[in-house]
């Protein structure tokens, strides 16, 4: 199966842009999380499921919710040196926006086993979009590396 994300050119000369897609917003968020991890490590399959972290975030809009999710992954990468994949992700509409619950699973960075790529500094608002398309959902994200 090919990944439900792909890296884009011509959006951010010095950084990394990707698009992610799937039938539901949850699928797009999971794909975007993998794309972010894949920016830092060449084979995301080399990240073993040893550590668990609960993710619970909220935002006014879906695109900002995605921003918050990816920022959580960037945070854990520096604060705990954890590379994480996301699963069991649920998005709920609330009165004022959206809430997301998910589980993040991964392990401490091990340069011996993880072929490391670029260190993601931040998730940007540049061209950030989460949108419904005719056949599902689609997102574009630019990462500052």
């Amino acid at each position: 199966m090919t990944s439900p994300y792909r890296y884009l050119e011509g959006i951010a000369t010095a950084d990394v842009a990707f698009e992610a897609w799937g039938p539901t917003p949850e699928d797009v968020f999971l794909a975007a999380a993998d794309a972010t991890l894949n920016t830092m490590v060449e084979e995301i399959g080399t990240v073993a499921p040893r550590e668990h972290r609960e993710i619970s975030i909220a935002a006014d809009a879906l695109d900002l919710l995605l921003l918050e999710l990816l920022q959580e992954l960037v945070y854990h990468k520096d604060a705990e040196r954890l590379l994480l994949r996301v699963r069991d992700l649920r998005i709920e509409e609330t009165g004022s926006g959206y809430r997301l619950q998910a589980e993040a699973i991964g392990e401490t960075i091990d340069p011996g086993r993880h072929a490391l790529l670029a260190d993601v500094k931040a998730v940007t608002l540049h061209r950030l979009v989460v949108e419904k398309t005719t056949d599902g959902w689609h997102a574009i994200v630019v990462l500052d590396v």
Binding site: A14, Y75, D78, A79, A118, D119, K121, V145
Partner: peptide, 14 residues
């Protein structure tokens, strides 16, 4: 949390 163990590190990218 993100920074207190990073003094003396180069980073990546450029």
């Amino acid at each position: 949390d993100r920074g207190y163990r990073q003094i003396g590190t180069l980073g990546s990218g450029n």
